[in-house]
Amino acid sequence: MAGIFDKVKDTLNSYRTPGYFKKLDHKWTMVVDLDMCNGCGACVAGCYAENNLPVVGKEDCGKSRAFSWLRIERYVDGEYPDVKVKFIPVMCQHCMKAPCEIGCPVYATYHNQDGLNVQVYNRCVGTFTCATYCTYDVRRFNWFSYKWPKPLDQQLNPDVTVREMGVMEKCTFCIQRITAAKDKAKDEGRGVKDGEVLPACCQSCPTNALVFGDLQDPESRVAKMVNNPRKYRLLEELNTDPSVIYLKRVMNDGKSEE
């Protein structure tokens, strides 16, 4: 009897250790070139369309309940006439040492073998712990079961669950598209090719600022891009080891706030 308890305890504890996943099938990575991003917001619309994100309305937006899994942050420096405006798209960073995973009491968020930080809606009991632990403020909570007035519901993507009240959600790197690409690759008896998986944001980007791929594939575009000297990761000093890599914006003021 005691043996079983110990085994369960050990298993659970292993999920508490950062980097518990040992060998990954893929390591999905996104590279965001901030010098190409022009802040237009097309990626946000793509995300809304692909992932069945509900529209919450003015009141709830005012209570910070807007759902966009991907947001574009905008920073304004300086006084007129020397004003510098900067944009940065921020989505779930799919940290390899994710604070949210450590926090969840029911293991609803964990790392899978694709290097993705995933959220299991059916397990989530809505304690909000992950959202408070998250360094990047990318987790969104379903305060209500949102309804789509007819016939807007006809647009809903059948590949993605419509989440209900009380669960946490966040960017999945469009896992349904990853699944579809793997499915297709399996049918054709091959591995997933570089460029075959395109999350909705990367697909729609009018400037091609977002690039997605498998870091473990040495031939992939992202594997080549991560050697770029402009590379940095968001709030890297917090040691969350994010899977989203940003390339610094080229800008006249040069001196970024280090």
């Binding site: 964990y110 299991v120 590949d159 669950t161």
Partner: peptide, 11 residues
């Protein structure tokens, strides 16, 4: 393969 991963069957 990955048959016990949540996101293999959940969406």
């Amino acid at each position: 393969k990955n048959g016990r991963d949540c996101w293999t069957c959940h969406k």
